[in-house]
C-alpha cells in the first residue's frame, strides 16, 4: 500500500494547492447545504421499496422520503436533492468524510456503528427483523426445524453473522451459501440449491412477491434479530441531527394527528386543535430553535406526506408497493400497538 499512500498524499498536496486560500472552515452543515442549494442524501445501490430507480430515472422509496422531507423542510422543495448511490463498503466513510450530508438506506442501527464510526444514528423509520423463507412443500413451520439445512444468504451484511449466531445458539449446523446479489440468491433457492433463504423480513416479503408462484413459499414466523433501520448523520453537528430527526418526527406526528398531504391546507386554515396549529406553524414558535422557516413541517406534510401515507405508497398496500402489511407490526403507530412514536411538538 506504499504506493497508494504516496499517490493520495501527492493528490492531497495538489488539492491543497488548488484549493488555495479556502481553508477548512467551521461552517455548520445547514449553512453548507443552504449555500449549495441542495441536500446530498446517500442511499445504496437500490433496494426494493426503500430506495430504487423507477423507469423514468427518479429515485423512489421509503428511505428516499426522509431525504425529501429534509429538503422540503429546508428549501420548501423536496426535489432540491442530490441522491447519491454508494456501495455498502463505502457508505459510512462517504458520510464521515463529508461527501454526503445524510445517510438514509436501510442501515441497521448498532452500538458499534453508532459509537465507533464518527456517525450518529437518528430515529428508526423502519423496524425490521431477520427471517426465513422456505418452500411450503418442505413442511417446515419453524426456524428450529432447519437442522442441517442449506440456507442462501447475501454476504457482507449483518444477515450473514446473525445466521451463524442463530445456528450456533440452537445447535442447528446450518450451512450458509453466500451470494453477492439477491437475484442470484433467489434464483438458486428457486432452483432447489438451498432449503431456505434468509434476509430481513421486509426484503423477503418484497422478493417473495416477485417469485413465479408466491403461494408455494412461506415466510417463517421466527425473527432472528432486531434490525432498527435508521438514517444517520455525521457526529458532532447537533443542529443538523435535530433537523433530520424532527423532519422524521413531523411525519409520524402528522399521521397521529390525522394531517395528510390532502387535508393539510384545510387543517392549517380551519383546525382549532392547538397541537395541529403548532405543528403547522399557525401558532407557537417551535421552528425557532431548529433554524428553519415557520412552514417547515407544513412543507414536509404537504409535499412528501405523513409517515402512514409514504408507508402505504412504497411498503404497504399501494399499487407499486412491495406489500408488507403494517397492522400489528412494529411499524404501526404506538396508538395501534407499534413502535412509531413521536415526542410532542410543542
Amino acid at each position: 500500500m506504499k504506493f497508494t499512500t504516496l499517490l493520495t498524499s501527492a493528490a492531497a498536496i495538489a488539492a491543497l494547492v488548488l484549493a488555495g486560500a479556502t481553508s477548512a472552515s467551521a461552517e455548520s452543515t445547514l449553512e453548507i447545504v443552504k449555500k449549495r442549494g441542495h441536500v446530498r442524501c446517500q442511499v445504496g445501490p437500490a433496494s426494493p421499496g426503500f430506495y430504487f430507480l423507477d423507469s423514468k430515472g427518479d429515485w423512489q422509496g421509503l428511505d428516499v422520503t426522509v431525504c425529501q422531507a429534509v429538503a422540503a423542510a429546508i428549501f420548501g422543495d423536496p426535489t432540491k436533492l442530490e441522491i447519491q448511490s454508494v456501495s455498502s463498503q463505502a457508505r459510512f466513510t462517504s458520510l464521515a468524510n463529508g461527501d454526503s450530508d445524510l445517510l438514509s438506506r436501510t442501515a441497521t442501527w448498532t452500538m458499534s456503528r453508532d459509537t465507533q464510526l464518527g456517525i450518529d444514528f437518528l430515529t428508526p423509520n423502519f423496524y425490521d427483523g431477520q427471517g426465513f423463507t422456505v418452500r411450503k412443500e418442505s413442511g417446515i413451520t419453524s426456524a428450529l426445524e432447519l437442522k442441517g439445512a442449506k440456507v442462501c444468504v447475501t454476504s457482507g451484511t449483518t444477515t450473514e453473522s446473525n445466521l451463524a449466531d442463530f445456528s450456533r445458539t440452537h445447535d442447528l449446523n446450518i450451512s450458509a451459501v453466500t451470494f453477492e446479489d439477491f437475484n442470484v440468491r433467489d434464483e438458486t433457492y428457486l432452483q432447489g440449491g438451498c432449503d431456505a433463504v434468509t434476509a430481513d423480513k421486509s426484503a423477503l416479503a418484497g422478493n417473495l412477491a416477485a417469485f413465479p408462484v408466491p403461494g408455494d413459499h412461506l415466510i417463517l414466523p421466527d425473527t432472528l434479530s432486531k434490525e432498527p433501520l435508521a438514517p444517520a448523520v455525521r457526529h458532532g453537528d447537533n443542529q443538523w441531527a435535530d433537523i433530520v430527526r424532527w423532519s422524521e418526527f413531523a411525519m409520524v406526528n402528522a399521521e397521529e394527528l390525522g394531517i395528510t398531504s390532502a387535508n393539510v391546507d384545510d387543517m392549517r386554515a380551519n383546525s382549532k386543535n392547538p397541537s395541529i396549529r403548532r405543528v403547522l406553524g399557525v401558532e407557537g414558535n417551535i421552528h425557532e430553535g431548529i433554524g428553519l422557516d415557520k412552514d417547515w413541517a407544513y412543507n414536509i406534510i404537504k409535499l412528501v406526506g405523513n409517515y402512514g401515507e409514504v408507508y402505504e405508497k412504497y411498503i404497504g398496500d399501494g399499487e407499486n408497493a412491495i406489500g408488507i402489511p403494517r397492522a400489528g407490526s412494529a411499524n404501526a403507530l404506538w396508538t395501534k400497538g407499534g413502535l412509531m412514536y413521536s415526542p410532542p411538538m410543542r
Partner: peptide, 25 residues
Amino acid sequence: SIIGLFDILNILRAISKDTPWIGLH
C-alpha cells in the same frame, strides 16, 4: 458501477429493484 456510478451495468442491475419489475435480472 461498484463505486456507485450508474453506468450501463448498474442501470441494468437496478431494473430488478424497481417495484414493478422486482427480480427481473
